[in-house]
Amino acid sequence: MEKFTTLTSRAIPLAIENVDTDQIIPARFLKATDKQGFGDNVFRDWRFHKNGDINSDFSLNNPKYSGSILVAGDNFGCGSSREHAAWALVGYGFKVIVSSFFADIFKGNALNNGLLPVQVSEGFLKLLLKTVEAQPETNLEVNLENQTISISNSDISESFEIDPYKKTCMINGYDDIDYLLSKKEHIEAFEMSR
C-alpha cells in the first residue's frame, strides 16, 4: 500500500448526498479479476450519457476543476461493499475523499487502499464546497500526522478523527495482513481453546 503523509492539491466538488458505490462504479464493470482499469469507469453513468457522450454538467468533466481531492456530500460510499469503488477512485487519481459522513464498509475499503477518508463537520463541508466552486484554483492541505485539513493561504482549518492504528498503517504503508500473520500463534491458540 502507498504511504500517505501530507497532500496539497486542488479539489473537485461533488455536492450530492448519499453517493452509493453503485454510482462510483456500476455493477456491470465488476467483472474484472484484477484491480486495474476501474478508474476509467468511475462515476461512469454520471460522467457519460447512455449514448456515450460526455455529460459536461458533471463536476468531474468540468475543466475548471482538477486535483486529487474529492469533496463530496453527506453519507458518501453507502450501499454495496464492492472494494472496486475504492479501486476506481484511486485509479482515477484521487488520494483523499472529504465528506461530512462516510458509510462504514467504504471507509474501511478506502483505508485499505491508501485512499484517505477525511470526515469534517457539515459546516466545514459546506464552506469547502462553496470555496472550491467559487475559486477552483484553491488548494486544500491535508496533514495526516496532525489530522488537519485546511484551505491554503488562509487560517481556515479543521481537525479530523482517524483510528490510531489505521493512521499508523496509512503513514507507513502497512496493511492488516502483515499484522494478522504476525499473530498466527495467538490465532492457533484461540482455535485450540474452543
Binding site: E83, N109, N113, D176, L181
Partner: peptide
C-alpha cells in the same frame, strides 16, 4: 459484509482487525 482486502485477510488468517 467486507471488502476484498478483508477477504484476503480472512483467507490469510481466518481473522479480521475490527473496532
Amino acid at each position: 459484509g467486507i471488502g476484498t482486502s478483508q477477504v484476503a485477510q480472512v483467507f490469510a488468517s481466518q481473522c479480521l482487525l475490527l473496532t
